[in-house]
Nucleic acid binder design. Structure first.
Length: 568
RNA sequence: CGCGGGGUGGAGCAGUCUGGUAGCUCGUCAGGCUCAUAACCUGAAGGUCGCGAGGUUCAAAUCCCGCCCCCGCAACCA
């Protein structure tokens, strides 16, 4: 086994179906990275799961008429099923509400408290007498004092986008019961003393300057520059871990505190299932042995680059801190945000019904919002699937297979010596493969996928130059060499493709009667890689593995998902 | 004057840090080929790089200044 590589995908909030935006930002790139690192020979642990505590869950459960534990359990299973559908190779899909996470949260909190990074403050919060609970700002609704919108939320008016204080609302009422029987009460809470940790965090962030993409580093810098503020880590709620400090037994930890710790808690869930062979401490408390890569949307970057590392550093224990932090921008739908309630956008459950998971995986990796927000459109999606996968890659595989079959039968052709044509191809391939590998390592996906496509084009180019369909009529030996070269290139292409489209990669390999890949392609050893398939090796029956998306399908999908509705 | 990101041929992007003939994919047009999913290969047209007849420089998409437009964020909605 190679070096240890810990990979986490941001934990999605458990209520609600994930949409393509959630997938593109964290789940998918984390999976591609995990698959790639495994093929490179690293010992990978890919952790994901659902974030479950907080008012939103309580509220969701109430609406569903279920106890919150049951509601979360059901939704967690729904997430899990969708992740499987998307072919995510998570080593463990856990939950922030697990008892393991509770243990770790207590451990970290106690250490922070002992080290003097926890402070007490009294704050004012709105209490709903009928609901018998404090209300989070966004669960107080009323009339916006600025624009008169009647369903403005306590934190912000969705209509005029003005940021509000809940006490400003007219006709304020509880979003849970609708009761307007509210009052402001004083309540004591615990805060994480981030200002005290600031210099420690700053020093550490500086060490990440060249490891993080610009977007992540700039966002972290921005927060540090503005100066960190103390952050409340407790709430007056029931759904959460009770605070393990005398005087706070009736309060729970705030989601943002226990959510990132969830990565550790979930690793312990994984570890507890096979304690003899799995040791969570090896991943989280031996930082020198582990490279840790995180994936998330840009809104999550401040937590992962500043507050979570600060939390861990404040314990004084040697927790593993993030090495590479990939934050990406958003995927929009017709220029607007995905929104379940507005029925706008493609959600993962529907997406998987419309097309194979690998189509989505390919499109999203090739169009990763790395520099700015990206728009999803069905015609662009179809265009790329048709051109890249069908015409360029699929066609290359098919024409080589068919020509081999008709000229030599279903075996790797024997005979013919390499010419300058092959040597030139090898050199180009070695160059492109090492570029591709580098981009994958650097998490530069758009460039990686563009390079991958160049490799496919190079295959077609080689076939066009060498014209095996002509040569076969006059020089069987030469044709054998060309097609054998083509077949070996198919194998390489399938392996290079496998982190991105595992299912189709497997199918392509099955055409060559090869099993799933177990290792990466070594660009330095291109001669060996290109002669992997020995002459006379049996081949499978040629068949088309990709199919096109017709213009009619595009039209109907566009209508079905309201792609052209006027954006709000 | 809140903060951040973006504005490059019809569309989507790279190039900007480290100034030096503007590059890629799609689309369009022409040609080649006919093994292959009307697929593949080659070539061409098309931009002077948001604006300022602004500054620096022998030279600016790239550095500096001013302005405009789009997107996102503003500490519980990737």
């Amino acid at each position: 086994m190679g070096k240890k590589c810990l990979i986490t995908s941001a934990l999605l909030y458990v209520n609600g179906t994930p949409h393509l935006g959630h997938v593109i930002g964290c789940l998918l790139p984390a999976d591609v990275c995990a698959r790639f690192k495994r093929l490179q020979g690293d010992e990978v642990l890919f952790i994901g799961g659902t974030d479950e505590h907080g008012t939103a869950s309580e509220f969701g459960a109430l609406k569903a008429g279920l106890p919150v534990e049951v509601y979360c359990e059901q939704n967690h299973m729904m997430h899990r099923k969708l992740y499987e559908g998307l072919n995510l190779s998570m080593d463990y899909c856990g939950r922030t509400s697990s008892k393991q996470n509770q243990e770790i949260v207590y451990r970290i909190f106690s250490a922070l408290d002992k080290n003097g990074y926890i402070t007490e403050k009294t704050i004012e919060q709105v209490y709903s007498i009928d609901d018998q609970q404090f209300l989070a700002d966004r669960y107080i609704v009323g009339t916006c004092p600025y624009c008169g919108y009647e369903n403005a939320r306590g934190d912000q008016c969705e209509h005029c986008t003005k940021v509000l204080d809940p006490t400003e609302l007219k006709n304020a009422r509880s979003a849970i019961s609708g009761s307007s029987h509210l009052e402001v009460r004083k309540t004591k809470h615990l805060f994480l003393d981030l200002p005290k940790l600031q210099s420690l965090i700053e020093k550490w962030v500086k060490t990440r300057e060249f490891m993080w993409p610009d977007l992540s580093y700039t966002i972290a810098q921005k927060w540090l520059k503005e100066g960190l503020k103390e952050r409340c880590i407790t709430r007056d709620l029931k759904w959460g871990f009770p605070v393990n400090k005398p005087g706070y037994e009736d309060k729970v930890f705030y989601v943002w505190f226990d959510a990132p710790i969830g990565y550790i808690g979930i690793t312990k869930q994984w570890s507890d299932e096979d304690p003899e062979h799995r040791h969570w401490e090896d991943w989280w408390l031996k930082p020198d042995d582990v490279t840790y890569i995180e994936f998330m949307g840009k809104d999550n970057v401040p937590f992962h680059s500043v507050s979570f590392p600060g939390t861990l550093m404040g314990t004084g224990e040697p927790w593993t801190l993030v090495s590479q932090l990939k934050g990406v921008s958003y995927l929009n739908f017709n220029g607007g945000k995905f929104s379940k309630s507005a029925g706008r956008g493609v959600f993962l459950d529907d997406a998987l019904k419309e097309f194979p998971a690998d189509y989505w995986r390919y499109w999203m990796m090739a169009n990763m919002p790395e520099t700015s927000d990206v728009n999803f459109k069905f015609d662009a999606f179809a265009g790329q699937i048709n051109k890249d996968l069908n015409d360029v890659l699929g066609n290359f595989v098919n024409r080589v297979m068919k020509m081999t079959q008709s000229n030599f039968g279903l075996v790797v052709p024997e005979g013919g010596a390499l010419t300058d044509e092959e040597k030139q191809l090898y050199a180009t391939l070695a160059d492109l493969i090492s570029k591709y590998t580098q981009y994958m390592n650097d998490l530069e996906w758009r460039k990686a996928l563009a390079t991958l496509r160049e490799i496919w084009v190079e295959g077609n180019n080689y076939i066009a130059r060498t014209e095996p369909w002509k040569v076969a009529k006059t020089d069987k030996q030469r044709a054998a060499c060309i097609l054998r070269t083509g077949l070996n290139l198919i194998r390489i292409e399938a392996i290079l493709l496998s982190p991105i489209m595992p299912t189709f990669a497997k199918e392509i390999l099955s055409l060559l009667k090869l099993p799933e890949p177990t290792g990466w392609v070594n660009a330095q050893d291109i001669n060996k890689e290109m002669s992997y398939l020995a002459p006379n090796t049996e081949l499978g029956e040629p068949r088309l593995i990709f199919s096109k998306i017709t213009p009619e399908m595009v039209t109907s999908l566009s209508e079905k998902y309201h792609e052209n509705d006027v954006k709000e």
